[in-house]
């Protein structure tokens, strides 16, 4: 009987652990958000976090979106030329980049760069008593360390994605005009002909949500890390993996919300 029940018990424990983790992350996020409207406000920390998450991620996001736009144009051309539908390439590139690839790829890149950095810094602070030291200096660690990063994530990622959208379109434009022989004016005309405000705004809203998730996962796993260098390493891995999975899952849900009708 025990042999039959043990897989069920293991499954039950796993489900219980996952639900417990979700609840813990939810409470952690609520606790950080509860400081949004209560002074003191650490404007300098918010500015610094925007720089760390946004400005310093600009090169990697710029390269990723530029090459993505270039590859998209090339792939779309090889596929659509079979049906004499080459004129749709510009629309394919701009809609793919603004709606999906810009926010998702920027999110994944920032999760790998800034999310890992947040978790590593916070984890090191935890295992070296720096977070406890904050408490002894009359400073709430959630308010000082977590809330500014959540705000910064929500602000920085849409800015990055806005830049990424432009570069992605530019990548498509470069390939289309320099390699595939498209007329530049016609390509740009086709790019903006079917582009709606909703396409760009939905991508920027997705980016805000992804920015929040990246900062939240980095802070949560770093904050809860324990056990020295190994614990910090595990926290960093968990932050990147969980943020990446959540970005992909939420991307589907948000797309469903924005475009299902």
């Amino acid at each position: 009987m025990n042999a039959v029940l043990s897989p069920v018990a293991a499954l039950g424990r796993a489900v219980q652990n996952v639900l417990g983790l979700i609840g813990e992350v939810f409470i952690f996020a609520l606790s950080a958000l509860s400081h949004l409207l209560r002074p003191p406000f650490y404007w300098r920390r918010i500015g610094r976090s925007v720089m760390e998450i946004g400005y310093f991620s600009l090169p990697v996001v710029a390269l990723t979106t530029l090459f993505t736009g270039m590859v998209l144009a090339l792939q779309a051309y090889t596929g659509f030329s079979r049906f004499n539908a080459q004129s749709a390439i510009a629309s394919i590139v701009v809609l793919s980049v603004t709606r999906e690839l810009g926010p998702v790829l920027a999110g994944l890149m920032v999760a790998g760069r800034a999310g890992a950095a947040i978790a590593a810094e916070m984890g090191t602070m935890r295992v070296t008593d720096q977070i406890d030291a904050l408490s002894t200096l009359s400073t709430n660690p959630m308010k000082y360390l977590v809330t500014p990063r959540l705000i910064a994530g929500v602000i920085a990622l849409p800015l990055l994605v806005a830049v990424g959208d432009i570069l992605g379109v530019m990548g498509g434009y470069l390939v289309a005009t320099l390699k595939l022989g498209f007329n530049g004016t016609d390509y740009l005309h086709n790019t903006f002909q079917y582009l709606r405000t909703d396409d760009v705004v939905s991508g920027l809203i997705k980016a805000s949500v992804f920015g929040f998730i990246i900062a939240l996962m980095g802070c949560y796993h770093g904050f809860k890390s324990k056990g020295g260098a190994q614990g910090v390493g595990a926290a960093t891995t968990s932050a990147v993996v969980s943020a990446s999975v959540l970005i992909l899952g939420l991307d589907y849900l948000l797309t469903q919300v924005f475009f299902s009708s």
């Binding site: 810094e121 090191t124 602070m125 070296t128 008593d129 720096q130 406890d132 030291a133 002894t136 009359s138």
Partner: peptide, 19 residues
């Protein structure tokens, strides 16, 4: 918090904020 705010602490490894 008010009662504890009168306590100063020297941690074993210093716990200085390295940032």
């Amino acid at each position: 918090r008010a009662l504890r705010s009168q306590i100063g602490m020297l941690f074993q490894n210093g716990a200085l904020f390295d940032s």
